[in-house]
């Protein structure tokens, strides 16, 4: 009986923690929106964050995007070949990349490389009293740290998504030519046929929202870090897990809104 009670208590406590964190992240986001009035004065920090995010992800994004396109082209090509439709591989590839895989793949890479670094950096600042020092100097940590990161990542993710889409198509074209004997010209024509404006703007909207979600969650976990190095490690791990789950959920919701029945 006491075990059951303990289970109920720990589950309830966990649910309360999740609700508390969700509320904290939302409030943090709206506070950041309020401080976007300081975008001009914080432009240096924003540009620095954009630069760091792009440089950090450039290599890994290039590899992942290229192979994502290659894998998608190969898998869809194998199936389409059964119906003698392998020359349509470009149509499927571009639709998949622009609608889902581009923003999703970019988000996953940025969660792992940039979001985790944000949580660790802010978490370290929290446990080493730097956040307290800012507060004492009447410098809002949200204005000083969070807002520039949210603005930067919401700019970076759509850029990375366009890059992923493009490189994915190039990877797909190489495989289509090498494995499926589809000429570059035919592949290019297929891409143009299936490249719809709606797919592009919904994909970019997703990327933008993912950027906001990843940065807000990562900063929130960093700001709530406690208990030294162990707390920073926990904040980093939690930021990756929470961001990943939220990207999946929100990604589905956006797809359902724009493409749902």
């Amino acid at each position: 009986m006491s075990r059951l009670l303990n289970l109920i208590i720990s589950t309830g406590s966990r649910i309360l923690d999740i609700i508390d964190f969700a509320g904290y992240s939302v409030v943090l986001f709206f506070k950041s929106v309020f401080y976007t009035k300081n975008v001009i004065s914080k432009r240096r920090e924003i540009i620095k964050q954009i630069y760091i995010s792009l440089v950090k992800t450039f290599g890994v994004v290039s590899i992942v995007a290229m192979f994502t396109g290659m894998i998608l082209a190969l898998q869809t090509g194998i199936e389409l070949k059964k119906f003698n439709l392998e020359d349509r591989v470009g149509n499927l590839l571009v639709a998949t990349l622009t609608r889902e895989m581009g923003p999703f793949t970019s988000a996953i890479i940025l969660i792992a490389s940039v979001g985790s670094a944000m949580a660790a950096e802010i978490g370290t600042m929290k446990v080493s009293e730097e956040i307290d020092a800012l507060t004492i100097m009447s410098i809002s940590p949200v204005k000083f740290l969070v807002m520039p990161r949210i603005v930067a990542l919401s700019i970076v993710l759509p850029i990375v998504t366009i890059y992923t889409d493009t490189l994915g198509c190039i990877g797909g074209a190489i495989i289509a030519k090498a494995q499926l004997n589809v000429s570059y010209g035919a592949f290019y024509q297929n891409i143009l046929e299936s490249l719809h404006l709606k797919a592009i703007y919904v994909g970019l909207l997703k990327a933008y929202i993912f950027g906001v979600i990843i940065s807000s969650i990562s900063c929130a976990h960093g700001l709530r870090a406690m208990n030294g190095a162990m707390g920073v490690g926990k904040a980093t791990r939690d930021s990756v897990v929470t961001s990943f789950i939220m990207v999946l959920i929100v990604g589905y919701i956006i797809t359902a809104i724009f493409y749902g029945l």
């Binding site: 370290t124 009293e129 730097e130 307290d132 020092a133 004492i136 100097m137």
Partner: peptide
């Protein structure tokens, strides 16, 4: 609080410099 803190400074044990 910020109004009160404007009169105040804290010297932290670790220095708490922005890294």
């Amino acid at each position: 609080k910020n109004k009160l803190r404007s009169k105040m400074g804290v010297v932290f044990q670790s220095g708490a410099l922005i890294n």
